[in-house]
Design a protein around this nucleic acid. Structure first.
Length: 466
RNA sequence: GGCCCUAUCGUCUAAUGGUUAGGACAUCAGGUUUUCAACCUGGCAAUCGGGGUUCGACUCCCCGUGGGGUCGCCA
């Protein structure tokens, strides 16, 4: 059975890139009827916070990414790591290192100068466990390093990139734990992937250099090694790694702006993946069905908000009006006599994201409109003509016995035919009702705000022209 | 600097040796419309460079160049 995992460290809000990694793991597992696990990598005690853990969980829930385990927390698995660490120390695949930071820095600089990889050569790799323990007893500080095999080529087959080879001499003896109780990422990662019986690891490209390290540790411990797939990075518009500079990187911010969950998932799925067909709108179920790791692209993808806007608009227009109204509620004012469903109906074709509703619909809820009276003037139509049109519109509205936007439109159109031009009738009316250059149509507004209010607004407009 | 990954329209990408290099977003033009959208029609726009291999290369190989990642007692 296929089992994947997403292993975030709870040091900040869920990131767009993290979401994509999680989604791909989820899709890959679900497609094969496998399991998707969550693991909290909180070995960095200073930076890890419980609140971020919660943030990650709730966002996944909202977005429809479900996990199949009780999330493991690395901070609670100290005994497991300790046992493996002791085993490595005893077997000599890891050793205590007493090198100071100064020594290490100097070594780094010198290697760089020689044009070599600045990796630790292992001054203490042959000291022996007993000797090391004596030094520690005397109070010397030590970290635990992996004794990296020399002159060996590590090869793994990446599902996305094919064969990747890395020479162990470019890796060196890296630190796997600060001490027995404080293991570090590359160590805990491979241990947990093994313990959790993870079969496939889909993660960001930045982990490619970590992969041979993890494989090496796994081999030293005789663990089975999972299959890897490394995703390209998501870049910002400036082609740099996606950063807060342009827009947000936090998933929750997009949710707050009124991007629909379905649209976000659809958009994120297409960042670096496509079905190979022309179908672009995908539900989660369809994604699970059609997802294929072979269709993942190797080059980085740029986060293009325009495309997100477009997809989001598609979802907004497609959505059932009652459900959409529910979702729009946070962005709409509440007012006696105003049916929000009608407001949403009038605006669903005009939205890219729900938060736009706030500015777009403010005039509906205001008691008195404030706008430049010149806006009422259609082209160079004389004031008297405009007043005349507005008066005629008032009569029509007054005589309306059914406030249905289609019927209203019909009546207004009839009258507009008689006007000097359709625009000279319709434009001032709409401005009188909305106070805006762009808005819903007059008929829609009248239906929403009602007879009284409509007439009141038109009267006001006429007065302002006097 | 070492190592690794990567390279098709502005952007996301399709085409796994033979296509007028396709689609979508964005953009532009037109239509529709009282406005703004939505919608419909159409246009602009790409194989990083140089060598090979081949009858034939976006596709395979090599060398450059560009971009990215990484080289933590972070993950």
């Amino acid at each position: 059975m296929i089992r994947t995992r997403f292993a975030p460290s709870p040091t900040g809000p869920l990131h767009i890139g993290g979401l994509r990694t999680a989604l791909f793991n989820f899709l890959y597992a679900k497609q094969a009827n496998g399991e998707f696990f969550l693991r909290i990598e909180d070995t960095d005690k200073e930076r890890s916070k419980k609140e971020w853990e919660g943030e990650i969980f709730t966002n996944f829930e909202k977005l429809g990414i479900k996990w199949d385990n009780i999330p493991e927390r690395q901070s609670e698995r100290g005994e497991i790591y300790k046992a493996y660490l002791e085993k490595m120390l005893e077997e000599g695949t890891a050793y205590y290192c007493f090198a100071t930071k100064e020594e290490l820095n100097k070594e780094r600089e010198e290697l760089m100068k020689l044009g070599k990889a600045p990796v630790h050569q292992g001054k203490y790799r042959n000291l022996g466990l007993e000797e090391a323990l004596k030094k520690i007893e005397k109070g010397e500080r030590a970290v635990i390093r992996f004794k990296c095999p020399r002159n060996k080529e590590i090869v793994f087959n990446d599902l996305i990139r094919g064969e990747i080879k890395i020479h162990t001499d470019d890796i060196g003896d890296f630190v796997i734990a600060k001490d027995l109780n404080n293991p570090l990422y590359n160590f805990t990662c491979i241990i947990d992937d093994f313990e959790m019986k993870i079969t496939h690891i889909v993660r960001g490209e930045e982990h490619i250099p970590n992969t041979p390290k993890q494989i090496l540790i796994g081999e030293a411990l005789n663990l089975s090694i999972p299959t890897y797939a490394h995703l390209s990075l998501i870049l910002g518009k400036d082609k740099k790694k996606l950063s807060k500079r342009e827009g947000s990187t936090a998933v929750s911010d997009y949710l707050k702006q009124g991007y629909l969950e379905e649209a976000i998932i659809n958009f994120i799925a297409f960042l670096g993946w496509n079905p190979g067909t022309e179908k672009e709108i995908y539900t989660m179920e369809e994604l699970i069905k059609d997802f294929s790791i072979k269709q993942i692209s190797k080059s980085p993808a740029i986060f293009n908000i325009d495309k997100l806007d477009w997809i989001n608009g598609m979802y907004i227009r497609k959505m059932d009006i009652d459900e959409l109204t529910q979702r729009c509620l946070p962005f709409l004012e509440q007012k006696e006599g105003i049916d929000n469903k009608k407001v949403v109906e009038a605006y669903k074709d005009r939205l890219k994201k729900l938060s736009q509703l706030i500015e777009l619909t403010d005039y509906i809820y205001e008691d008195e409109l404030k706008y430049d009276k010149d806006l009422l003037i259609w082209k160079d139509a004389p004031k008297e003509e405009i007043k005349d049109c507005l008066n005629k519109a008032t009569d029509i509205i007054q005589n309306l016995d059914n406030l249905n936007k289609d019927l209203i439109q019909e009546e207004l159109s009839k009258e507009a035919q008689k006007a000097p031009s359709i625009g000279s009738f319709m434009w001032p009316l709409r401005v009188a009702l909305s106070g805006k250059k762009a808005s819903a149509s007059s008929a829609e507004i009248i239906e929403i705000i009602g007879k009284e209010n409509s007439i009141k607004r038109i009267k006001q407009a006429i007065n302002s022209l006097n």
